[in-house]
């Protein structure tokens, strides 16, 4: 789970599966957008960070999986097309966008420390002493605030609704006061703007998009096939139970040949259909009734058919 404050919302709760993402990314590029796109998908979270229209960072994290750059873009496309994803777009200042990028690609020093149990002063002192460049992430279930540091000195604060690094600690520290608040300490390595390549310039997003579409279509097909197989297997199991019951009843009334007759007449009534419908059963009763007359009298046949109908009714009800 990537924990980032929400920034200044541009668009929220969009279904990215219904958006032509290469076009959208290009529009943001042309509009010199600075900020980030957050994709919450069923299999993880994807973040695309823009700085002045350049796509400087792409990250996808889900479970144990972590992809960056083109692989992350591909995965974001795939998961968006797969459905059930939400896209939120937040505007940020360039400095904040770069800081977030640095943060996302940095390392976690400490994770999930309970604020209540922590000596914050001592921690800040340690950051200063170690000249840490990175940030403190303070969060609860629904709020996140970041405090950025450069070489042990605080740079500013970023919390939900901010577009720039703020100098006042009020909002950020209010998160720390919330019950259950936790703190992560992260270090960042990358900070040079010049080193940031524009992924849109080097990646063929249309090709990645098409590939993702194919992959999702394949996945969907496989899922549908699997569903069909499961349905078929369930129907097969149901069919076997029905045949088993019919054979058992026929054997009880007509002996061994009754079971064989039931088996054969059921196959004829089924006539290659996968589903045992009412019509199939009616046809079967008619057929077995006629065949049974060759080895038993009308009263035995009638009793057998009644037993079969009762048994099937109970089986289908269960």
């Amino acid at each position: 789970m990537i924990l980032l404050p929400r920034g200044n919302p541009v668009k929220e709760n969009i279904d990215p599966g219904k958006v032509n993402l290469p076009d959208a990314l290009m529009k943001l590029h042309k509009g010199n957008f600075t900020g980030y796109l957050r994709f919450d998908t069923t299999q993880g979270v994807g973040i695309l960070i823009y700085d002045k229209g350049r796509l400087i960072s792409a990250l996808f994290e889900g479970g144990t999986r972590r992809e960056i750059a083109y692989d992350a873009i591909a995965l974001i496309f795939e998961r968006s097309l797969a459905g059930g994803a939400t896209l939120n777009i937040y505007r940020l200042s360039s400095e904040l966008a770069m800081s977030i990028h640095a943060l996302l690609h940095g390392e976690v020093l400490y994770r999930g420390q309970e604020v209540k149990l922590l000596d914050i002063r001592a921690l800040l002192g340690k950051l200063k002493e170690d000249q840490i460049t990175g940030c403190l992430r303070i969060y609860t279930a629904d709020r996140v605030a970041l405090i950025f540091y450069r070489e042990g000195n605080p740079l500013g604060f970023f919390h939900d609704g901010s577009t720039d690094l703020e100098k006042t600690a009020e909002n950020s520290m209010s998160v720390a006061k919330l019950p259950g608040a936790k703190i992560d300490v992260l270090t960042s390595k990358i900070s040079e703007e010049a080193a940031m390549a524009d992924l849109l310039a080097s990646a063929d997003t249309v090709a990645i998009w098409q590939k993702a579409q194919e992959a999702v279509a394949r996945e969907r097909r496989a899922r549908e096939e699997e569903a069909a197989r499961t349905l078929e297997e369930r129907e097969k199991e149901r069919r076997q139970k029905i045949v088993g019951l019919l054979k058992g009843v026929a054997e009880k009334h007509l002996g061994k040949i009754g079971g064989q007759l039931a088996d054969k007449e059921f196959d004829k009534a089924l006539n290659g259909q996968g589903v045992v419908s009412e019509a199939v059963l009616d046809d079967f009763y008619k057929r077995i009734g006629q065949a049974a007359k060759l080895v038993a009298g009308p009263s035995t046949v009638k009793a057998m058919l009644e037993d079969m109908q009762r048994g099937i009714k109970a089986l289908l009800k269960a």
């Binding site: 002996g255 040949i257 080895v295 035995t300």
Partner: peptide, 9 residues
């Protein structure tokens, strides 16, 4: 032998 345990056997 084929219909041994049927009613008609």
């Amino acid at each position: 032998a084929n219909i041994k345990d049927s009613p008609i056997s």
